[in-house]
Design a protein around this nucleic acid. Structure first.
Lengths: 110, 110
DNA sequence: CTATCATATAATCATTTGATAATATGATAG
DNA sequence: CTATCATATTATCAAATGATTATATGATAG
């Protein structure tokens, strides 16, 4: 059970177009910052700041792999089922994630 | 199916503490402005403006009865199931709505 | 008609938000 | 070590948000 303030924080964290798109992608796979820059056609600082917002809400986790930082959904978060409910109301992803995996690796960055 | 922008609008409409409380009350019963003023201990203009926000999102309907304007949830709204999902995450109403119904009528206003 | 009650609207202001530009950090390649 | 790539952080600014104050509207009581 959450306080009204906590639910407000959660809804504010996810209630933004760019972050909704990020969350939708993250239900499919793990992504790094530069991939979001390509997918969402936004500046790197803007992407980083949106990811930080989601991280502060503890909805996503980050993991560094070499030069890259990969983000993934925290599927153990108590709000995760509600998050999925929201994502299910969104249009399907226009980009097929498979389409930019070639020979088993991502082609969006570098 | 809704656009990202529409889902954003919906989440912004409900993602505020006062409006979450209003929505929680409205899942139980219909309320007029002066009742919300008492229940939420906020100024009348502030209450009116929050109700307008919910009305613009088409989440609630209004109905005038004499001097009073009563608001109710639009349970036919496509987002209504998601709204209930959110309300179910909230703490139970501290005030029992029954407690201010005496002899079949409301005692909060006048 | 006039006074009053309930509600709505408008103006103002402080705070938050999201984008951009500039800069800093941190890891890897050579 | 130095250069470079990926990401984070900071400062700045315009727009949105929510509370307050003052005022307007709209219905009812007398």
């Amino acid at each position: 059970m959450y306080s009204h303030r906590e639910i407000e924080s959660f809804l504010k964290a996810i209630g933004e177009e760019t972050r909704l798109r990020m969350i939708a992608y993250l239900t499919i796979d793990t992504f790094c910052v530069c991939e979001f820059v390509e997918l969402l056609q936004m500046s790197q600082p803007s992407i980083s700041q949106h990811l930080r917002r989601l991280k502060e809400a503890e909805l996503i986790k980050e993991e560094r792999r070499g030069k890259w930082v990969f983000y993934s959904l925290d599927r153990t978060h108590p709000m995760y089922p509600l998050l999925l409910h929201v994502v299910n109301m969104l249009p399907p992803l226009e980009e097929n994630v498979q389409s930019f995996i070639v020979d088993g690796k991502r082609i969006l960055c570098e």
